[in-house]
Write a protein that binds this DNA or RNA. Structure first.
Lengths: 217, 217
DNA sequence: TAGATTGTTAATCGATTAACAATC
DNA sequence: TAGATTGTTAATCGATTAACAATC
């Protein structure tokens, strides 16, 4: 990574992951009543360290005021802009099984600027149907459609054994970021980001915690 | 954390999260053909560092052999036991909206030893219905049912603004581990684990990556 | 034996937290 | 001014990776 890139990504991965939490919390506040919010207040509400909050917010250059805090309205706006929620990102999804259907019909993503425009599957019984108004097309059309519509985000919700081939298709289709729900490690060119939504990892943590509790009880 | 606790949890959170990846990969191999697998081979397949793999596997005490590697069958068994997938954990889910319905109907969790036994909701139009054979009950029955059935895992799939109250109910119901899909930071007693499935954080990473790509192009 | 691999100790890297000057 | 807060530098903590002895 060059020096230039460093200034570019002057925020850590961990900090970036926390930004949506701040934004979500700040948006939950009553902007009529609360004009200013301080880092200790945010930290307390979210169970974080106040220095961490300040450092994270410093990265988005929203400029707080000593003694008072941050201007709520401005902070929300800056977070929104920084996270890119203001401009909607279009995505395609492959795999219209249980999980895929859920993701397509889940309304919550639009809040975060993600819009799933179409689904793909190989199963002829689901191809041609609609899920919440979104069409399900045959997988063969993935590459041409992505190119034509300049879609940059691909969501993988297929079984682990088919994940890599779908991934390869997405790369071919010019997708730049892949959100992978399959429990598989994907191999991609360096410029493409794979974000694993690793439910198995989460379950491992839960399971371990319970085992510990049980053996103690 | 006491010295005793340290030996107890001699594995790091990050390492624990990787164990399911190893298990998943090992299970995908043909056990007839492959009797032995080495850490460099696992590392290469999953795109990890081989020392990291060895260190992670050392924590589960499966004992590899210098020059050859690990016995595949034994390693799978040990990982399975360590992760607690062998004994199924029963869970309740609150919130039968889009996401909740998806989670209830998703078959994949049983592989990881998680069995969602029943759903809860406050909406009278969904209470009494069934989703993939799982009943949806009124939220008032949560506490009594969890106590009666000794359920230890709770899944929260309600909007952010209701997450804390549902969480409090779960704590009252004796739940020990909470899998939280709501974009909210939950406050719980120290002995209870909250595992946040933070889709907003993942989207933040995707969004940032794309923004960078775009500005460069 | 020579060579490949395990398991562990030491060095490095990155993220969090503590300390503190600057500010209003 | 006194006091609360920001922003940054230094110290700490935890995880990853490099180095290497032990093993078969």
């Amino acid at each position: 990574m060059t020096e230039l890139d460093k200034t570019y990504t002057a925020i850590s991965v961990q900090a970036l992951k926390r930004l949506p939490l701040y934004l979500n919390y700040l948006k939950s506040l009553d902007r009529e009543k609360t004009k200013i919010i301080s880092s200790p207040a945010i930290a307390k509400a979210l169970g974080l360290n106040e220095v961490q909050v300040r450092k994270d917010l410093a990265a988005i250059k929203s400029g707080g005021r000593p003694r008072t805090g941050y201007l709520l309205e401005k902070l929300i706006g800056d977070l929104d802009t920084y996270l890119g929620y203001s401009n909607v990102n279009e995505a395609v999804l492959v795999g219209a099984g249980h999980l895929g259907r859920a993701l397509i019909s889940y309304q919550g993503f639009e809040t975060y600027g993600l819009n799933i425009v179409v689904g793909f599957d190989v199963d002829e019984t689901v191809v041609g149907t609609e899920i919440c108004g979104k069409k399900v097309l045959p997988l063969e059309k993935l590459v041409s459609l992505c190119h034509r519509m300049h879609v940059n985000i691909g969501i993988i919700a297929v079984p682990a054994e088919n994940a890599q081939e779908v991934c390869d298709l997405m790369v071919e289709a010019g997708i730049l970021a892949i959100w992978n729900f399959a429990p598989a490690q994907l191999t991609v060119p360096a410029h493409i980001l794979v974000q694993n939504e690793n439910m198995a990892s989460s379950l491992a943590l839960l399971s371990k915690h319970l085992k510990k509790k049980m053996s103690k009880a």
